[in-house]
Amino acid sequence: ARTHRLVEVGAILEQTAGMTFDTEDSRRALSVALTERLRYTNGQPFTRGGQIAEAVGMLLEADGER
């Protein structure tokens, strides 16, 4: 079940990104892009992965799934 879910999530990511992550370098770059510690203009830290998780959580809450 976990493997199936990971494949589905990977397919969604590739589709929305408009690219494939078929090499170790591209997967490493994706990992860096999602985990890189950035800062908003007010100095608050964030990661792109955290932004995605927050957006998904908000959508699930709006749908009453959380």
Rank of each mutant, 00 (worst) to 15 (best):
G18F: 01
G57N: 02
D63I: 00
G50S: 07
E36H: 11
G57H: 02
G50R: 05
I52Q: 14
A17M: 13
T41E: 15
V56M: 12
R66V: 12
E65T: 00
Q15H: 11
Q15E: 15
S26Y: 03
V7Q: 06
G18Q: 12
V32D: 03
G64A: 07
Y40Q: 10
E8V: 12
G64L: 06
G50H: 03
I52G: 11
V7Y: 05
I52N: 13
I12V: 15
A62Q: 04
R5F: 02
H4M: 09
G43F: 03
S31K: 14
R5H: 09
A55L: 12
T35R: 09
L59D: 07
M58S: 08
S26R: 01
Y40M: 12
L13S: 07
L34Q: 11
G10R: 02
V9L: 14
G50E: 06
E54T: 07
R27Q: 15
L60W: 10
V7S: 07
A17G: 09
R66K: 01
G10C: 11
T20P: 00
E36D: 07
L34H: 05
G10E: 13
A55T: 13
P45R: 04
L13H: 06
A55D: 13
T47C: 10
L60A: 13
L13G: 04
Q51G: 11
E24M: 12
L30E: 06
L34Y: 01
L34D: 10
A29S: 14
L59N: 02
F46T: 04
T47W: 03
L60M: 14
H4Y: 08
M58Q: 08
R48C: 10
M19Q: 14
T16E: 15
H4E: 15
G50C: 09
I12M: 14
P45N: 04
L30K: 12
G43I: 04
N42W: 07
Q51F: 08
E36K: 14
G43R: 01
P45S: 06
V56I: 15
E14T: 03
E61S: 09
V9S: 08
D22W: 05
E8M: 10
Q44S: 10
L30R: 13
T47I: 12
E54G: 05
T20N: 05
E36C: 02
L60T: 00
F46Y: 13
D25Q: 12
A62V: 05
A11L: 13
L59G: 03
L13N: 06
L13K: 01
A53H: 10
D63L: 12
E65V: 01
D63C: 11
T47P: 07
E36W: 02
G18V: 01
R37T: 15
D22Y: 06
A33I: 14
R37K: 15
A53G: 08
R27D: 12
R27M: 15
D63T: 00
E65S: 05
E61G: 10
S26E: 07
R39T: 03
S31V: 12
T16S: 14
V32E: 03
T20W: 02
A33Y: 06
A62M: 08
G43N: 09
L60P: 00
M58K: 05
S31A: 12
